[in-house]
Design a binder for these strands. Sequence first.
DNA 1: GGTAGGATACCTACTGGACGGTATGCGCCC
DNA 2: GGGCGCATACCGTCCAGTAGGTATCCTACC
Lengths: 205, 205
Amino acid sequence: MARQARALATRQAVLLAAAEVFDERGYAAATMSEILDRAGVTKGALYFHFRSKEELALAVIEGQGAWIATWAPSSDSPVQTLIDLGYAFAHALLDDPMLRGSIRLTIEHGSFTQPQIAAYQGWTDLVHTLLERARDAGDLHPGIDLAAAAAVITGAITGIQLSSQVLAERRDLIKRMADLWTLLLPGLVQPHALARLSVAERADS
Amino acid sequence: MARQARALATRQAVLLAAAEVFDERGYAAATMSEILDRAGVTKGALYFHFRSKEELALAVIEGQGAWIATWAPSSDSPVQTLIDLGYAFAHALLDDPMLRGSIRLTIEHGSFTQPQIAAYQGWTDLVHTLLERARDAGDLHPGIDLAAAAAVITGAITGIQLSSQVLAERRDLIKRMADLWTLLLPGLVQPHALARLSVAERADS
DNA sequence: GGTAGGATACCTACTGGACGGTATGCGCCC
DNA sequence: GGGCGCATACCGTCCAGTAGGTATCCTACC
């Protein structure tokens, strides 16, 4: 697997361009030509690295896994970490074309079905783990169904992000995220824990 | 505008088939041929009623407006009505292909941008109105930002529905809706009002 | 350290098919 | 009998993917 540095660079260029185009047009409406142009690469180069349009899309979707993998807890408090995760995700959506394309492809449950489920599951698992820690810390209301709460939270964030994109090109995404936590947290965490949380975005990571 | 009955029938057949195909494949991946086949109609008939693929899609999106227009409040309590609206929407998503296609097209912020915003806005306005009534009835926490809450609720329902579709083909949609209300309501309504609500689906409409 | 030779990385031109849309014609209801 | 409603055949375009060639790099042997 001793690849050349140049090869890795073009591969990355293709991935980035593909993520951008997929994000803007969606899978079916995206054309290889536009990806080619934007990457500054020829067809031969692209099809050397990716055997088909679908394989390219799958590689873009994989970007989510990479993002999750590099993410690190930001606080001792699990719930605060969950809130911060939401904001980190929001900022990544605003800044990182790779994640944007990945998210759009995931949301478009289209021809390829399996990997989307994996991507969704990755987020839900992450949230679920944080909720478990919060429960063990005694921060949550007793009797909360963690799996249900994790599914609702990931689903809600998905929808918030989507509606913010359609209605305002994500300009109000951060505010919408704050609004979501304001509404959700009272049903999730106990008052004593709620008092210690910063619902608005915090200064540090 | 005295149209023939037959014409209206084929127009409806085309709309229904289009909604189904758009729902299953998305706008770009949907082909006119498949819509034609499923509607049992020829190209000439379709293009007599709709001048282009885009115009057909817009007509499908309009189905949402029709659904909202026919919907009627189910309870004296505004919040209960809001909850019931969520379940009614969920059932319509499970049963009504027209609404399904319309929702998918709305979610796919694609080539045509304007009407999606209108569709989103229709839902948000409806929720906003119900929240206003709830506030006037003294059911909500004081100081709640109604516009923000309306945006979060519609966004969250959008996302719940979407993740339920991707992960479980909407099989757990009703449960997810119940989970959402369980989490959301404590942050929205005051305890005395919460006690009177039925979060789970009710027997009547 | 120079070069043979194979593998890696990339380029260009092309193809086959599908797709949205149109032109034209024809029967049937009012 | 005229226009509404539909049928059929056709067209130009565009797109994913491929064929086949070329350049660039790495390794190894002398």
